[in-house]
Amino acid sequence: MSESDEHGPASDRPSALEVFLAWPLAAASHIAQTNIRLFETFLPPANPRPSRQLIFPWASPNTISLELGTMSLRNFSTRNDGRATLICAPYALHGATIADFATGHSVVEKLGQCGLSRLFLTEWRSATADMRYFTIDNYLADLNVAVDELVPPVDLIGLCQGGWLALVYAARFPNKVRRLVLVGAPVDIAAAKSSLSNFAADVPLGSFHELVRLGKGIVHGQQMLGLWGISHGPNEADATLQAGEAIEPPEREALVERFRQWHAETVDLPGSFFLQVVEWLFKDNRIAEGRFVALGQTVDLSKLTAPIYLLAGSDDEVVAVDQLFAAARLVGTRGEHVVKMIETCGHLSLFLGTEVLGRAWPDVAGFLLRDFNEPQAIAERKDAPAVGGRSIRKSIG
């Protein structure tokens, strides 16, 4: 029995926030069920002004090491020596601050506390009109420039939609990635069902093209929020952030308000990139089937032999556990160098939840820091006990 079977299949009833953070497919599904011409009338108009720079504040001190066409390379390092760890952030509805949301709710902060001193993050740019024809290759090419800037091989961490991009990059340039961590990332869409993959399967491809046409080549984040009409109560924020009852009311209110501000700040996506992701990843399942072409070459996951860590949420409605864990059988990594961890949480809590950050992420840091030549590196328990009333399952191989 797989880990996901043991904890039950991904729910068919996602929270609106989790679906929307991952990708604006829900809006496209709604379009597919309604006369598309009516949406031309009722959709809020696209903002004609150039996309402004995102203003949601970072929780951790950082500088910009490199400016590229698709991204700013954020530097959170506390030292200038040592191996670089690069976090590949999602490029979806919200910005890269998902990796550094707030004190106590930050992947960047936790990794730094655990001894990773050279930390970098891809901050993908909100798409402007001149970026509307950017494709997946544009993002892979700039990711490659960033890795070269950091001096490969690097340790690469891919979050959510940044996870499949990190995996494709690592398989395309296997000598440039020493270790790979994928968190809540879709890899094999056929391995299990999720809300996100169901949306993509059910909506005709033509509807996605129409969505891009309506945005004049851009998928507008603010339009998606306005169309879906999501409301967010404090309970949803509490569950996601796992703040607990010990937090004082004023601090809790400030945290919930920060969560609302973060959610309200969206990024726009290039239409060409968006359509490729929908078709290549979610409809054709090209990564898992060995048909994904990256920078002129078909990606062969079996050539990727780096140690790999897979972190999933048992209650993740956006990415099913088996959609991520399928990576273990697709890559060429030795079984004893593959770590699979399940946390009992939803999608966003994998990156923002206090409990997950306190348990799983120190283990991720240990995976990146340990010497795999030492016997204890692979002498892990197959099952970890429940912690704080929440079950965890970790396996090697």
Rank of each mutant, 00 (worst) to 15 (best):
Y169G: 01
E6H: 12
V331G: 07
V181L: 00
L167M: 05
V267P: 05
A102I: 05
R329C: 04
I189P: 03
F259Y: 08
A200W: 03
F76Y: 15
L275V: 10
G104A: 12
L73I: 11
A312C: 15
A26Q: 10
C345K: 06
I55M: 15
S106L: 05
Q53C: 10
R118Y: 02
P307M: 14
W280M: 06
S195I: 02
G296S: 09
G233Y: 15
Q323I: 15
P270H: 11
P50F: 08
S4I: 09
D12A: 10
V267D: 03
L25C: 07
K394D: 09
I287P: 06
H30Y: 14
T135P: 02
T344D: 09
A191V: 00
L281Q: 11
G221N: 04
L205N: 00
G233C: 11
L269I: 10
L324E: 04
F120P: 03
G112A: 15
N198Q: 07
G353F: 11
N138M: 02
Q113W: 10
R291F: 07
V219F: 02
V154L: 12
G332L: 07
Y169P: 01
I87D: 06
D202H: 01
N285P: 06
A146H: 01
V319G: 00
I189A: 00
A243I: 06
R370K: 14
D315S: 08
L330Y: 04
V331T: 14
E248P: 13
S195P: 03
L211A: 10
A190P: 05
G112F: 06
L214W: 04
L241V: 01
V339F: 06
F20V: 12
G221S: 09
T266A: 13
P48Y: 03
F173Y: 08
R334V: 07
L86I: 03
E279L: 12
M341L: 08
A28G: 04
A146K: 00
V321K: 10
I87K: 02
E279R: 12
L304H: 10
G206Q: 00
G215Y: 00
S4E: 05
G104S: 12
R74W: 03
I31S: 09
F282D: 02
T135S: 09
P153Q: 01
A16L: 14
A200R: 03
T305E: 07
N47R: 12
A92Y: 01
D142I: 09
S231I: 15
F56D: 02
D284R: 08
V212W: 03
S51H: 12
P48T: 02
L159Q: 15
V147P: 01
T70W: 10
Q297T: 11
A320L: 04
F199V: 04
